[in-house]
């Protein structure tokens, strides 16, 4: 067990009855990194986070947080890990300050300055009643409660869900502040690709319970490329291009997104598109969406060839 890994998962698999929700999930997250866990609703993100946190047992496989087995975390281990769940459960009748007092009882360390700074960033006064807060502000309180315990590792399940732009900014600032020293680690699931591009240095993409991308944001960007091909009878052959992530129709063209475009791939592109083949600029969100869109259609027509790109991306 290497010490420089904040999170390590090996072959995590979880079935609910006969339904597989997480499958053979391997993940290594180095300390000091911010990882965005992306995937469609139902891809298995929340289940994975719950297994990592030891709140759910895996059917197979094992995972470690800060070097400790997820299924045997002691209260001391848990005090070093901050975890927020989707939806932020807080008592509406408490004030923000009462909520802090209630919470701090259960933690060995408490950074009151950090709590106040975080809630203020979300425009909250400690004297306010929880029930009068907006959804974004509740998220702020929940985050402040988690951060004030000074964890070494933050596991956040969709912290940005339903936040307004100002609260999103406050969230991003809080997360970046948290990892300022370079030793603290964050794993967060999200649907906000722009925010992930900003805040994260690593990206993990889940599709149908499998981890298909796990690398740095820059590596991901440089390995995914997008090409436009004019329609011709040969275009039907795009499904056979090595490393194909996704293809879609756009006007009179077929736009293909590829992982790890090498000589073999370029040869296949030229064979199909000929001289009309044109490389397109691709943004981070387009690259992620290509992976997620493909997953939505995978039950229909894509051949097994198209999985190759995913497997190659998953190698990291």
């Amino acid at each position: 067990m290497l010490n420089d890994l904040a999170i390590e998962a090996r072959g995590l698999t979880r079935y609910f009855d006969s339904r597989m929700v997480v499958s053979d999930f391997d993940l290594s997250i180095p300390r000091g990194s911010v990882t965005g866990l992306l995937g469609l609703n139902g891809a298995g993100k929340t289940t994975t986070l719950r297994i990592l946190m030891g709140l759910l047992a895996p059917t197979r496989g094992e995972s470690y947080l800060l070097g400790k087995n997820s299924q045997c975390l002691t209260p001391d281990d848990r005090a070093r890990i901050g975890y927020t769940v989707e939806g932020h459960f807080l008592y509406g009748w408490m004030t923000v300050r009462q909520s802090e007092k209630f919470h701090r009882e259960t933690f060995p360390r408490w950074n009151a300055g950090m709590f106040d700074a975080t809630v203020r960033r979300f425009g909250i006064e400690p004297s306010q009643k929880i029930r009068h807060l907006s959804r974004g502000q509740k998220a702020g309180v929940s985050l402040a409660l988690t951060m004030a315990a000074e964890p070494e590792l933050l596991v956040l399940d969709d912290p940005a869900l339903g936040l307004d732009p100002v609260s999103r900014l406050a969230l991003n600032e809080t997360l970046l502040d948290f990892c300022d020293g370079g030793t603290k680690t964050i794993l967060l699931s999200s649907h906000l690709l722009d925010d992930v591009e900003r805040v994260a240095d690593r990206v993990a993409v889940m599709v149908h319970g499998r981890l298909v991308v796990n690398t740095t944001v820059d590596d991901f960007r440089s390995r995914v490329s997008s090409w436009a091909i004019e329609h011709s009878p040969a275009t039907r052959g795009v499904e056979s291009i090595p490393g194909l992530v996704h293809s879609r129709q756009l006007g009179g063209k077929t736009v293909v997104t590829l992982a790890d475009c090498d000589q073999e791939t370029e040869a296949a592109l030229t064979r199909i598109g000929g001289a009309t083949c044109e490389r397109l600029p691709i943004t981070f969100d387009e690259a992620v969406i290509a992976y997620l869109s493909r997953s939505r259609e995978s039950h229909s027509f894509l051949s097994s060839n198209s999985k190759r790109g995913q497997e190659r991306m998953a190698l990291d």
Partner: peptide
Amino acid sequence: VRQLAKELVINPNTVAK
């Protein structure tokens, strides 16, 4: 690195790179 990362609200590793 820290200052610019804070100003732009981005990951410091990006600035460092």
